[in-house]
Amino acid sequence: MSKIRVAVVFGGRNSEHAVSLMGAGSVLAAIDRDKYEVIPIGIAQDGRWVLAAAGQRYAIEGAQLPEVDTSGAELALPSHAGTVVALSPGEIPRPLGEVDVVFPVLHGAFGEDGTLQGLLEMAGVPYVGSGVLASSVGMDKGYMKLVLKAAGLPTVAHVVVPDRAWRTDRARVLKEIEELGWPVFVKPARAGSSQGISKAEDQAQLEAAIEFARTHDPKVLVEAAVTGREIECAVLESLGDAAPEASVPGEVVVQGGQVFYDFEAKYYPDQITLEVPADLPADATQELRSMAVRAYEALGCEGLARVDFFYTPDGELIVNEINTMPGFTSTSVAPQLWMATGLAYPQLVDRLIQLALDRPVGLR
């Protein structure tokens, strides 16, 4: 029997480009080559799709972040049958064959936000992870919180700052944010990996923080600071019709002296420890896992997700956010949580591919 053809897609046109490559490197190393034929595809910062070059680097080396090597053959995905075509200068386009499933190890805009998912739906190609709507809502923290709140889940008090409001009605926006109290955390509304986030202690810092976040996204989210421990839980779709499963929860403890769980803490060595399972009362653990699945289902997620919580000193659980394509290196939080729950990284990769193959494209 012929092998299942899996296109592992990574990179992307956003500030999480390097994070995507790190996850793709882990997936490519773990995927079962006896079972799957793998086509590694990079999306460059300028939007070109290329076949991964032989010397493609996936890991951080010193302070050098990886990026897609564009020396490989340029690729195109026609809008039918999932056939990948190589486009070499001066040569007739040559088909590389049909792809059975796409594993998009992509984060941020033009990858995790429903845009790529829409392209794959149009092409009729199965893919790992959530569909168009869940991906889009999960990427936009403002709409995500609306959906979570409508589902009865507690969220952090916040103010959404749209581009036009900041440009034309700044005084009103600042007054509204001031009512949250100080300090506040300022985030791009549609970015991840802690990119563009800063803490503001007063109005002067707030305006600078908003301008900084706007370098990543013209839409900004400002949240009240929450005193509490950062607890994370991964959710995974079940094969068949069983309910999604929640992992054991883990607590992120920042070691490197950062004010909060920032990019360096997440992706540079020896910056955090993940305490798994998190030291929580049994009833809190049970409630947290139940809330994680509720959040997953509220957005209509598919495949996988990671749900982040605050656990306050008085025992309250607050949903911070949900990630429809969480960090996916073998040492990232979600894979570590599944390892502690009994599912090793190679088996996690295999299960996600099988889930994608079992799921139809189109309305479902």
Rank of each mutant, 00 (worst) to 15 (best):
16 E>C: 09
17 H>F: 14
17 H>V: 14
18 A>C: 05
18 A>T: 07
19 V>S: 06
20 S>R: 05
21 L>F: 10
22 M>Y: 03
22 M>K: 11
22 M>T: 12
23 G>I: 12
23 G>D: 10
23 G>H: 13
23 G>S: 15
24 A>Q: 03
24 A>G: 09
25 G>D: 03
26 S>D: 04
26 S>G: 15
26 S>M: 04
27 V>A: 06
29 A>I: 06
29 A>F: 03
29 A>R: 15
30 A>H: 10
30 A>Y: 09
30 A>L: 08
31 I>E: 04
32 D>M: 11
32 D>F: 07
32 D>Y: 08
32 D>H: 11
33 R>E: 14
33 R>S: 14
33 R>I: 11
35 K>C: 15
37 E>S: 15
37 E>A: 15
37 E>I: 11
38 V>C: 05
38 V>A: 08
38 V>I: 13
38 V>H: 05
39 I>Q: 13
40 P>Y: 00
40 P>K: 00
40 P>F: 00
41 I>T: 09
42 G>E: 01
43 I>Y: 02
43 I>L: 07
43 I>Q: 04
43 I>A: 01
44 A>D: 02
45 Q>K: 15
46 D>P: 09
46 D>G: 06
47 G>F: 14
49 W>P: 11
49 W>D: 09
50 V>T: 07
50 V>P: 01
51 L>M: 12
51 L>F: 03
52 A>C: 10
52 A>T: 05
53 A>W: 00
53 A>Y: 00
55 G>Q: 04
55 G>N: 06
56 Q>L: 02
57 R>S: 15
57 R>D: 14
58 Y>D: 00
58 Y>V: 00
58 Y>T: 01
58 Y>L: 01
58 Y>K: 00
58 Y>E: 00
58 Y>H: 04
58 Y>I: 01
60 I>M: 06
60 I>T: 02
61 E>M: 12
61 E>W: 05
61 E>H: 13
62 G>V: 08
62 G>M: 06
62 G>S: 08
63 A>Q: 13
64 Q>I: 15
64 Q>Y: 03
65 L>H: 07
67 E>T: 11
68 V>Q: 07
69 D>E: 06
69 D>N: 14
70 T>I: 11
71 S>V: 00
73 A>G: 04
75 L>D: 04
75 L>C: 11
75 L>T: 04
76 A>N: 08
76 A>M: 15
79 S>L: 13
79 S>H: 11
80 H>C: 10
80 H>D: 13
82 G>W: 04
83 T>C: 11
84 V>M: 15
84 V>E: 05
85 V>A: 04
86 A>E: 13
86 A>S: 14
86 A>F: 10
87 L>N: 10
88 S>C: 09
88 S>P: 03
89 P>A: 12
89 P>K: 07
90 G>P: 08
92 I>D: 13
92 I>S: 12
93 P>A: 03
